[in-house]
């Protein structure tokens, strides 16, 4: 692959998904884009790069460009991944959010990189098992992802034997799944609780609406610093002042944004911070980046 072709594919990935790749990842392009080349009858990455049309920042392009983006994004997901964020949500965040809201207020939870749906469905299980605490309150779970293929699987709610053994306790398997051939179908009662939507995190996020808790785990690691900052700021705008953000274990807001602060002794859990206007003016987002570099 010529340097020009690499630049062209890297530019598409950055503009279309925020994915930042260096020339050392050429092997990854070769591996993951092989099926895309076959699908589009292209015999090399150079031929593929030559066919790419420019995409605008945060768009959902479709066609070859979307296929390239989908092939390069990672859709690794499993039920109750890392366990602790879910335990925190069930035992700490959920009771607090409910206590702080009037009984008629709807609770909205956002799985921002929903992939094939395991995170959103794990949250649905927690909420279904918290029925007494919810006391009839309306709850909405929104699962978004850039990959339409992954979202298709999420909506389908059909998982392999391997997938249902990753993180899911056997009691939950029995309670919420039924066997269909060699696969496992998630219960309709959980599917009805989750709404999956195609969404690019680089785009305008206002369509998601206000969300009380946001799970955006293991996605920022693929972004460069300015993109992380931009995405976190956009997510913050979709959250109330007491909203809770969950990031992956290898991710942080430190030095990236001042819109969130880490919850003490809770790795990966962040609280929304809304600075008074005067203080916010003294501390623009760029300050955080400068501080980190310093």
């Amino acid at each position: 692959m010529t340097p020009r072709s690499f630049t062209s594919i890297a530019a598409l990935l950055m503009a279309g998904s925020g994915l930042s790749i260096g020339p050392d990842k050429t092997y990854l392009l070769e591996n993951r884009l092989a099926p895309v080349m076959r699908k589009h009858h292209l015999d090399s990455l150079d031929a593929l790069a030559a066919k790419l049309r420019p995409v605008s920042f945060g768009s959902m392009p479709g066609g070859l460009e979307q296929d390239v983006i989908e092939a390069m994004t990672t859709n690794e997901s499993f039920f109750f991944r890392d366990d602790k964020p879910f335990t925190h949500f069930r035992t700490r965040a959920l009771p607090q959010l409910l206590a702080d809201r009037p009984a008629h207020a709807k609770l909205r939870i956002w799985s921002a990189a929903a992939s094939t749906g395991q995170e959103a469905y794990s949250l649905a299980m927690i909420l279904q098992e918290s029925a007494a605490m919810l006391a009839g309150r309306s709850v909405e779970i929104i699962g978004t992802d850039i990959s339409r293929e992954a979202l298709g699987r999420a909506r389908e709610g059909l998982y392999t034997q391997f997938e249902v053994q990753r993180g899911l306790p056997m009691q939950s398997l029995v309670k919420y799944f039924r066997k269909e051939g060699s696969q496992w179908r998630i219960a309709d009662s959980l599917r009805q609780m989750v709404q999956f939507r195609s969404l690019n995190l680089l785009a305008d996020l206002r369509s998601v609406g206000q969300c009380d808790a946001v799970f955006c785990r293991n996605v920022l690691i693929y972004f460069d610093q300015p993109t992380k900052s931009r995405v976190l700021a956009a997510i913050a705008r979709q959250m109330p002042s007491d909203g809770v953000l969950y990031l992956g274990g290898a991710e942080t807001v430190l030095g990236i944004t001042d819109a969130f602060t880490a919850q003490a002794h809770e790795r990966g859990v962040y609280e929304r911070v809304i600075l008074p206007p005067a203080q916010a003016a003294l501390c623009p987002p760029s300050f955080a980046g400068a501080a980190a570099r310093g």
């Binding site: 034997q161 056997m170 009691q171 398997l173 029995v174 799944f177 066997k179």
Partner: peptide, 11 residues
């Protein structure tokens, strides 16, 4: 064995 009935018996 991977039928739900076996998992239920195990539980």
């Amino acid at each position: 064995e991977n039928d739900i009935s076996f998992i239920e018996q195990a539980i």
